[in-house]
Design a protein around this nucleic acid. Structure first.
Lengths: 216, 216, 216, 216
DNA sequence: AATGAATGAGCTTTCATTCAT
DNA sequence: TATGAATGAAAGCTCATTCAT
């Protein structure tokens, strides 16, 4: 009798580590957005990525490190997007830059539900996780510094009195975060357009020569 | 049949259910603030409360229901505090009420680290937990309605032009949430006083006859 | 997120799922026989199988499903054993088949203490567990149909008067179950041989041309 | 201020221990029949009895002892019912006694679903619980002895040849148990009437002068 | 590099039992 | 006697992590 042993075929395609890491981070974002932080398991993430269970520990050592990498990715993405605007040679005028900043903060890319959900998922854990807090904080500081300097330029240009660039920047950042929260929590009552109107109004009040009040 | 082989021997003291429920909710707030949502276990909570493991299921049926009761408690506390101000007979003038609202939103009671941490912990999970989202949303709607009506009175009184009470209210709420986030994430760079200044400035810009710009 | 602080270190050996399932079902039978249904825990079963706690949920999803698989295994084993006799080409004569059936029903393999204990354990729970009842019932129906048809052939051949194959089959099945119970409950007073004598006598009375009364 | 302390009224009616014990045993039978052995909890039983949680330990010391008392109650009830027939002065003829025995074994009182369910629940656990096994066994021995003596009288009276009272009695007992099982497991396919026919036929075959074959 | 069966600590939940009232 | 809030051991189940393949 001839024994024909059929080996179970396993697909094994070696990909550069960076591709795998990205794939897993993307899957993590999807899972956190869909199921929340506490229901995001390694099994879910790897299934979402179409990969095997063990792969996370191969590329990230632990779940914790995958989460940190995910947060860092999101934060970096936001900060670099913002930095690009501020250093852009397209928008040279201060007013243009501020407007571009507003556009960016309410662009579909930044206000995508899953991205916002991930931000708040991490903020929710930040109090008790020094590493998360540190990353969030670093991102905040970078954002704040960049914006403050831009606003300072506007204040100098416009000769606005009694306005502190620092206060304005902190207020703007807080307002953005709060509006994102509303977009996430109450998508029915709250639209991106409405959120942008509110933020625009905030800046128009403070820097009337640079930003016009929202249309309708 | 569950085999219970050893007779437990310990202290005992019956308390009215309401006392126990409160005790457990308080412990839950402490644990979420200290350890985060995902590290908040029944063992932690009951240990914090100085009670036995089984007590949560006795008084709340499940962990999920304890968490929901906790969220509801926090939300109710905030909303009723706010309501008290708006219907208060102490502050009769609109301007006084707005000022009282500001005071309330940045009072130590409301901005206690643990309370804020709990808010954000739940917001972080809200996207994927309909019940959390519903409670948060209901609280938001109540807050929004109350504030909008107050701002409308101010607008009518002051004869302010081109201001929408709805936009102002939504902006105020968002700003408050964002400032709370900063108080939570970056307590070093951010103080309660500074947060209040920013919020005051926001309202002073819109309702100059009712609210004065912050002092320093 | 579940906090797993300690790295587990142990032996490992992957087996095809079928092997593991069989292994676990065997261990379940042993445990139910030894400790009874209500003292059969996952820890006991996995320890008996020499495997880890988590393995049952990996291969059966839940304890309930393991128990159902166990019942089904036992039932299938009995039914297929019986079927083999009835369709066997070795015993062609009806009388031979009936005798083979008797031999089978009191064979060491079928009347093994642990198998009987498992039958009765499930019967004891069947009233309140629709799934158990369904499996037991389906097995019963199959058994009954097979035996009835065999007895009908005997009745036709022997020209026995006033005997209903249906009644005879139901009686035989009931008698077998009752004798098994006695073998289980009172092994001291009751032997396999004695049980078989009683069953043989029952059939010899009804089908004298096919079955001879027991020896002594 | 006058403090009026309303004491919560608690109904406390001291009943003779025997009444309480009976109440609890009845509730236990109901629960086992409804939910099965492994889902029968003290909470269920006491709720069914309309009493407080702690009462079982007051009257029975432990759950185990309540279960044993329940089994003993059921067994005693059966045995004493049977004894009453055998020693009855109403049925003096042996044939009458045997008929009365058959009537009793398939009376609604004995074949009540809940009673049968309890029997099988205990039989299911008997293998691993010496106490259960002992009670079941003792009941069996009593039954067997009583029946054997009755059958012996019939054999002597009828001058039946080649029949052992012992074998007949053991067979009868086993058949009864098996028929009860069918009544429990397959109430759709199996009726009390049908079961009684089968048992009657069994005895009619062995003791034709005493028992007539079943009607239809 | 990649897989996924296997592990076992830790989770939520259940429930027999205790005991202050 | 009787109550029922409280206890805590043990249950079933989850899931991050390991490692033979």
């Amino acid at each position: 009798m001839t024994e024909v042993l059929v080996q179970p075929l396993r697909k094994r395609r070696a990909e550069p580590p960076e591709v795998r890491r990205e794939q897993l981070i993307t899957a993590t974002i999807t899972c956190i957005a869909r199921n929340g932080m506490s229901a995001t398991t390694m099994a879910e993430v790897t299934k979402e990525a179409g990969l095997s269970q063990g792969i996370v520990n191969l590329h990230f050592e632990s779940k914790e490190k995958l989460l940190i990498a995910t947060l860092r990715t999101i934060a970096d993405e936001y900060n670099s997007g913002q930095q690009k605007i501020l250093t852009s040679s397209v928008h040279t005028a201060v007013a243009d830059k501020i407007q571009a900043l507003l556009d960016f903060d309410f662009s579909p890319r930044v206000t995508r539900k899953d991205k916002l959900a991930v931000w708040f998922a991490f903020w929710g854990e930040a109090k008790s996780r020094p590493t998360y807090q540190h990353i969030c904080s670093a991102s905040d500081i970078a954002t704040d510094a960049a914006i403050r300097s831009l606003f300072q330029q506007a204040i100098d240009e416009g000769g606005y009195r009694g306005i502190s660039a620092e206060l304005l920047a902190q207020g703007y950042t807080a307002l953005i975060d709060g509006l994102w929260l509303d977009l996430l929590i109450a998508p029915r009552r709250f639209t991106r357009k409405r959120a942008k109107q509110i933020a625009t109004l905030y800046l128009a009040n403070a820097l009337p020569q640079h930003i016009e009040p929202p249309g309708d």
